[in-house]
């Protein structure tokens, strides 16, 4: 009997939770705020679904009720992706070590 592909996805999911668990515990507490902003940015990979949804309308009717939600979701996720990564970049650039010569 064949295994349902769902089981494989579930396996990936469960194993990723464990990876997340160990990786996040190793994050230094002083970087917890950048951690939140970067997790925000990466969870916006949901834009993948939004793009599929946006392009689902046929060429005669680009804005049907389903694709309009896709387009809106694209904007929301894009705000998050750009905002999240850039603000993380901005924060991380501020973390500096003590200058040796002092």
């Amino acid at each position: 009997m064949e295994i349902d592909p769902f089981i494989f996805r579930l396996s990936i999911f469960i194993l990723s939770i464990f990876i997340g668990y160990y990786v996040v515990w190793s994050v230094t507490p002083s970087l917890h705020t950048p951690l939140m902003s970067v997790t925000n940015a990466i969870s916006s990979v949901i834009i993948v679904g939004a793009i599929i949804a946006g392009l689902a309308g046929n060429s005669a009717n680009i804005f049907n009720s389903s694709s309009i939600f896709g387009f809106l979701a694209i904007s929301l996720a894009a705000t998050n992706i750009f905002g999240g990564f850039l603000v993380t970049q901005r924060m991380l650039a501020m973390y500096k070590k003590k200058k040796k010569d002092k």
Partner: peptide, 10 residues
């Protein structure tokens, strides 16, 4: 999306 969701969730 599954991997990311799990990472962010945990």
């Amino acid at each position: 999306l599954i991997i990311t969701g799990a990472l962010v969730g945990s």
